[in-house]
């Protein structure tokens, strides 16, 4: 599975450090704005900088199984909210 960010849902700024590398994203399925934690920011930024990104490359960023499971959940949620696009 490959992932890329939806540029209409998230924007990365040079000033993101001011808020500790957190940001907000737009959920096009519900028209809600929601908070992106620094851990999620790191993943989304990695995808944005290297897209399209294969899921294996994302898994390689993490050491333990718990984190990998959290990542899978995150990818699923963000894909549902159309913050990420995915394809085989």
């Amino acid at each position: 599975m490959y992932y890329q960010v939806n540029p209409e849902s998230i924007i990365f700024l040079r000033t993101d450090f001011v808020c500790g590398f957190s940001t907000i994203a737009y959920d096009w399925t519900s028209d809600d704005i929601f908070f992106i934690k620094p851990t999620e920011y790191r993943i989304l930024k990695f995808i944005s900088d290297n897209q399209p990104v294969k899921i294996d490359s994302l898994m390689d960023l993490l050491d333990n199984d718990g984190d990998k499971q959290t990542l899978k959940t995150m990818l699923k949620t963000f894909t549902q909210k159309k913050i990420l696009f995915s394809y085989e």
Partner: peptide
């Protein structure tokens, strides 16, 4: 959230 992230 809007207070903290005005550009976004």
């Amino acid at each position: 959230l809007f207070s903290r992230f005005p550009v976004q």
